[in-house]
Computed example of a mutant assay.
Amino acid sequence: MTTTSSAPRFGYTLMTEQAGPKDLVRYAVDAERVGFDFEVSSDHYFPWLSSQGHAPYAWSVLGAVAHATERVDLMTYVTCPTIRYHPAIIAQKAATLQILADGRFTLGLGSGESLNEHVVGAGWPAIGDRQAMLVEAMEIIRALHSGDLVDFRGEYFQVDSARIWDLPDRGVPLGVAVSGERGIDEFRPLADHLIAVEPDAGLVEKWNGHESAGTAAAHSRAIGQIPICWDTDRDAAIARAHDQFRWFGGGWEVNADLPTTAGFAAATKFVTPEDVADSIPCGPDLDVVVDAVRPYWEAGFTDIALVQIGGESQDTFLADAAGPLLEKLRAAAE
């Protein structure tokens, strides 16, 4: 078992797919007040399912959250800097947000999903191309965050005489979503932190032990995320999780290639509420949630973000359950 040198941090997820922008900012303030260590935001053009019902612009939301909060770290989880956005624009946005957040922001990057990237009409490349594009994008972002005038000619991107004029003093840390060991070889030389979708100790160990990590490995974080559906009524929690989060069980390999909410609905039409309840902790029992989160810190994850399913449930969750849940998680992880 991999262990960390310090206690894990627990985060709150600002799900842009299940709440509007003003509500998300309010939830962010309440999550900081109740004691979460950090907050991550999804960055989608579409929700996965129509029943989720929202998709505001994550960067506007994060700018507002940066000013409305004081302590919590902030992060994109994750943004794709290759199709819907050009990496030069991501570099500018991230630098500005880091200034607004007074150094609390981490730029989390990934190779994207067709659901969000297809909207600009640039097609949806094969996975090998998407990963190669992400490598080039990270190189561009790193170069621009140096403050230098940048010219870049790559296989996928071109940058002509670009410079970021407003840069934060300490830069912008980069996290990257990795699903396997091949991704570590490609992305570890360019990223500070690992983002992973499963509690895989081997992935964390290889990330920290990679030849490019050097002394930075001691400061690298492994960041994960897990959905939960707290409710005083377990049946209501299961029904809500099934309605809004049954897509979760499809896995990254399937979900990355589905282009529309209709596609996700069709792909999940045979998923039952029982299937969802088997994979997502649902109901009032906080100890069940702790047991579901435990594999992440046991695998060496330093940061674990919770997704409370259902926009309509956030106020009650934050007021009644989040505080006691954080106490239980921190006590169990000691």
Rank of each mutant, 00 (worst) to 15 (best):
H145V: 03
R182S: 11
W165I: 04
R221V: 06
V288N: 14
R330E: 04
D291F: 00
F157T: 03
I89F: 12
G183W: 10
I309G: 01
A7Y: 09
Q18Y: 09
G323Q: 07
L329Y: 06
G283V: 01
H242G: 12
E17G: 00
A299Q: 05
L115A: 07
G154Y: 05
I184S: 05
A266C: 01
I90S: 12
Y57L: 08
T16H: 04
S42N: 02
S279V: 15
E312A: 14
E198W: 05
A101R: 07
G263N: 00
H210K: 11
D257A: 15
E113F: 12
I238M: 08
L318K: 05
A216Q: 13
K206H: 13
A55I: 12
A265V: 00
R234M: 06
A196Y: 10
T215C: 08
M15C: 09
E17F: 00
S50W: 07
P81H: 01
L49N: 03
V178I: 13
E205F: 00
P168E: 07
H145F: 07
L24M: 04
R130A: 01
L190V: 09
L258Q: 05
L167F: 13
E181W: 08
L258E: 02
T69P: 07
V135A: 13
T16L: 09
T302S: 15
V293R: 02
V254S: 14
S42V: 00
L306K: 08
I223E: 01
V61S: 02
F248V: 09
A213M: 13
Q225A: 14
S313E: 10
H86P: 04
V150H: 06
A292L: 07
T302F: 02
G311Y: 09
D233Y: 14
E155S: 14
R163W: 01
R221W: 05
D37A: 13
G224I: 09
A216S: 15
S161Y: 01
D231P: 01
I141G: 06
R163C: 12
D192Q: 08
R170K: 15
G154F: 06
L100F: 13
L190P: 09
D185P: 12
L329A: 06
V29F: 06
P8F: 05
R188P: 07
S42G: 11
G112H: 03
